[in-house]
Simulated scan of single mutants.
Amino acid sequence: MLQVVIAMLLFFVMMFGIGFILNMLMKTTWFPVYLFVIVLLPLGIYYTWDDQLSFGGNLTAYSFVDVLPAITALIGAFVSGWAMRALRRGGYRMF
């Protein structure tokens, strides 16, 4: 269980950092969330897909250990967009 908590924290921090940097470079607030949902999640599912199992079998093969870090990474991407929006509202033009 400790490894899951550490993985969740690392994925949150990693996606927050990547999202914050992408927001600064591209000046788009919610791009990291879209990137995560449209690119990273499908790639993660694609590389773990087993052709021997059915669609439902593949989806039920994921356990909470697989899902929790992905959810916290999505939350990290969302929080980076929220932080960027708050900084822009605060008058920081750099962000």
Rank of each mutant, 00 (worst) to 15 (best):
R89W: 01
Q52T: 14
F16Q: 01
Y47K: 11
I6Q: 06
I6G: 04
I18E: 10
I38S: 14
G90D: 05
R93L: 13
G56P: 04
Y47I: 15
V79I: 15
L25Q: 11
T60E: 15
T29N: 08
Y46Q: 13
A61R: 15
V13S: 10
M94Y: 00
A86L: 12
Y46R: 07
M84L: 06
V33P: 06
F64V: 15
K27G: 06
F64M: 14
P69Y: 03
G91Q: 12
S80L: 08
Y34S: 13
N23K: 08
L9G: 13
R89C: 03
M94D: 08
Y34C: 07
M94Q: 12
A73P: 02
A70G: 09
P32W: 06
Q52L: 09
I21E: 02
L40A: 14
G17S: 12
P69G: 02
G57T: 10
L68Q: 05
W49L: 10
R93Q: 09
F95C: 04
N58E: 11
G90Y: 04
F12M: 04
V4K: 10
P32F: 03
K27I: 08
G81N: 03
L35C: 13
A83H: 07
G44C: 06
M1Y: 03
F36W: 12
Y62P: 07
T72Q: 01
